[in-house]
Design a protein around this nucleic acid. Structure first.
Lengths: 296, 296
DNA sequence: AAAAGCGGTTCATTAAATGAATAGGTCGGC
DNA sequence: GCCGACCTATTCATTTAATGAACCGCTTTT
């Protein structure tokens, strides 16, 4: 949209941290961009950038403005999406920020199902830890977040909550594989691979261990649940994951952790508070809501 | 704001109902305006006006767009107001849509009080019946509504609710003036002046009368409570008003209607749902909230 | 049938945005 | 402590975009 170009420039400058860099990114001269900003600041009634020797940075007024810009850009997209919907074609784009557990099975299945009904809709899936996922909502980079045990932020509006009990992952010949439910203390006696601290699974286990005064000494840490699952195959170690990220297979068994030791965490589906989502996103969220019920 | 000029043109055309008329209003040529709209429609991806022989009218897509335009214009004002607030000066404008009862005493007092603390803030007060007041919120023409017995719309977010028992207004020598609380059936035996049907007071009385199978035959109807009050002086008739719109005086007495006959109505303070108000409006609303408590 | 009002089109003109060159400043490394 | 690198800000000729005036074709009104 032509008339929003100034806003886009402001966003670019914010990202780049300097007018010159942003000018390059946007294929424009620094002088032109500089004057645009000056003109805008005059109209707006206040400076929005702090001029530093090494570039520029948003001042408080600018922070307020950029929030408005992002909100309004996203709302315009929503309107366009609704308009497209009026004319019959169901088009649009859905952007999702999610935890890793959703990546292998749940989301691909859901997206494929949705796209079967509405082939015009495209998707983007960003894997983010729970904090980053919530930040994505706040900056309108994602419409929907589906995360395990998020750090509740004020702007995160929960739509559905599904409890998930952490499962252990091990080889079928692992000593603990004979038990239906595994105790945490037993796990800690064996080799374990754990996710890094920013993940909800680690957070829950860590808290539980602290309560029972046990220390955790994983033989490996990773930010990839996929890696951990594979690793448990090779070294006969115990890995951890939530059920929605698992699907039965021959070479591995899954045993739930006792909820007496580690309480179930929650998988949360949500959006930015107060925001009206584009049609496609709203409908996909409805679908997710229904499908998630099946897991509870 | 320069870049919003197209949006303003679209609003002007919507108001005027034709491109030519709007062009005159905006001091521009019809051809220029016409091309602007065509350019915009192309960028936007859809026509937003229905071309009729006698002018243009928003189509459904246009309706969606204009809602966005209004919301975004109002939000930009909010941002500017917050920015002004950052720099220390408390400036801004508060627009209020309210019922007539608030006009003589309550609002002038409240506004004067607020302006004493913040002289930079200006006000606009629009007297609207309950339906129109809610519509004003929806189109962002007013920030705050303070209305008696509104017709609850989805977009009206209630902040505070104050019950108000309808009072009768009569001359001190009226036969009913001897009673502390007046019954509706007694009133109906005397000459009454009533507000027109769009007003909450009329609505409540009408409903109560219908329940007791009495017909209402006012000797005068008006959309001015001021007129009705004055009229009760001249013809010794009974007028009706809610307490917040009344202040003791020698030539008239006020007697509450029995709540057994006519239930108390509610005075509601509210804003548009989901909207973040400019600082000045938000603060004034806080003040109103506190002050209204004193009436309950 | 004529007149008035409407949106849409064309083209010369005017206004606005841009690019290139340059000034003037601060910071970091030698 | 000085030099070069990098930044924003300014100036002016140039390019690009928006505008106004005149006109077309259409429908409704008189």
């Amino acid at each position: 949209m032509r008339h929003l170009v100034t806003f886009q420039y402001i966003e670019a400058i914010t990202r780049a941290g300097s007018i010159r860099k942003a000018a390059e990114d946007m294929n424009i001269t620094a002088s032109a961009l500089n004057r645009r900003i000056q003109r805008f600041e005059e109209e707006f009634g206040s400076e929005i950038f702090e001029r530093l020797p090494r570039g520029v940075r948003l001042n408080p007024a600018g922070e307020l403005l950029i929030r408005h810009i992002r909100a309004q850009e996203s709302d315009l997209k929503r309107v366009q999406s609704q308009v497209a919907d009026l004319s019959g074609v169901r088009r649009g784009h859905v952007s999702i920020a999610c935890s890793q557990a959703l990546v292998p099975y749940f989301l691909p299945k859901q997206i494929a199902k949705y796209r079967k009904a509405h082939p015009g809709v495209t998707f983007s899936v960003s894997v983010r830890d729970r904090e980053a996922a919530e930040a994505e909502l706040g900056t309108f980079k994602s419409d929907i977040a589906l995360v395990f045990e998020p750090i509740f932020m004020a702007d995160f509006q929960v739509q559905t909550m599904v409890p998930q009990t952490i499962s252990t992952i091990m080889r079928p010949d692992h000593p603990l594989a004979t038990q239906k439910v595994v105790r945490l203390r037993d796990c800690l006696d064996y080799a374990c691979v754990l996710p890094e601290s920013q993940y909800g699974v680690r957070f829950l286990i860590e808290r539980a261990a602290a309560e029972s005064s046990r220390t955790i000494s994983p033989i490996a840490e990773s930010d990839s649940f996929d890696f951990m699952r594979h690793y448990s195959l090779h070294e006969d170690a115990i890995a951890f994951q939530i059920p929605i990220g698992l699907e039965e297979r021959d070479d591995l068994v899954f045993r739930e952790l006792s909820t007496d030791d580690v309480p179930s965490g929650n998988l949360l589906l949500g959006q930015m508070r107060g925001r009206t989502l584009p049609v496609a996103s709203a409908r996909f969220m409805q679908q997710l809501e229904i499908e998630l019920q099946k897991y509870s």
